[in-house]
Design a protein around this nucleic acid. Structure first.
Lengths: 109, 109
DNA sequence: ATTATTCATCGTAATATTGCAATGAACTTA
DNA sequence: TAAGTTCATTGCAATATTACGATGAATAAT
């Protein structure tokens, strides 16, 4: 039904999925990569840099901001976005727990 | 339009997004975690273990299989799934490149 | 052969996501 | 004040995703 049954999963599983979903669109990957590269914040160049319409970029930024991965501060008429370092590290910890699971070599297939 | 403009992104960005999308649903996270835990394959216990209908689990398995993260081999009347170790390591490398970006402390906000 | 088991596939309904044009809010500059 | 800049929000159309009942295919057991 297009709706995810979050209530049947653990908090950890839902958290992993939520972070992963944020990275599940190349535009958001590109935004984050650009924020890392330019580092000292940026503003509307993302629209030019990425090539999607301004409302679309704004929407992706909103999702990342809601998750807490980026912060934005008003800078006159423009807005200055940057990675939220603390949250990023917290996210990495959560994702690592999932990605770094031990692989035993007794696979069957 | 519900459709992602993959053509305007780099191959790497699309690859990251594709892997991340696979982890963007708690059911698929749970499936992978269970496959790691049980290790030597499993079959239909996933349905019982997770609590979604059999066609739903089957659909999630298909997505993971299409991505190559899991393999399945017929075992009589049941099917034996397991992590594709090589692909999993390859995925980890791709995701690490993205997640382990250097954080400079000259953030603006 | 018939029945049971296990899993995939099909079809469908409900909801979510992606994308953009139009518009609005807030500030800057002329 | 008026016009320009920058970004958010609204509203909408198109497509994607999630979930499941019904059904089908393949093998196993009786």
């Amino acid at each position: 039904m297009g709706i995810t049954k979050t209530e049947i999963f653990t908090e950890q599983q839902n958290e992993i999925a939520t972070f992963a979903k944020a990275f599940g669109h190349p535009a958001r990957v590109a935004i984050l990569q650009h924020l890392f590269k330019i580092n000292t914040c940026i503003c509307g160049d993302l629209v030019e840099e990425i090539g999607l319409a301004q409302p679309t970029i704004s929407q992706h930024l909103k999702e990342l901001k809601n998750l807490g991965l980026i912060k934005g501060s008003i800078e006159g008429t423009s807005i200055c976005y940057c990675i939220d370092t603390e949250k990023w590290l917290q996210m990495k910890k959560v994702m690592s727990q999932f990605l770094d699971q031990d692989i035993l070599n007794e696979t069957c297939c």
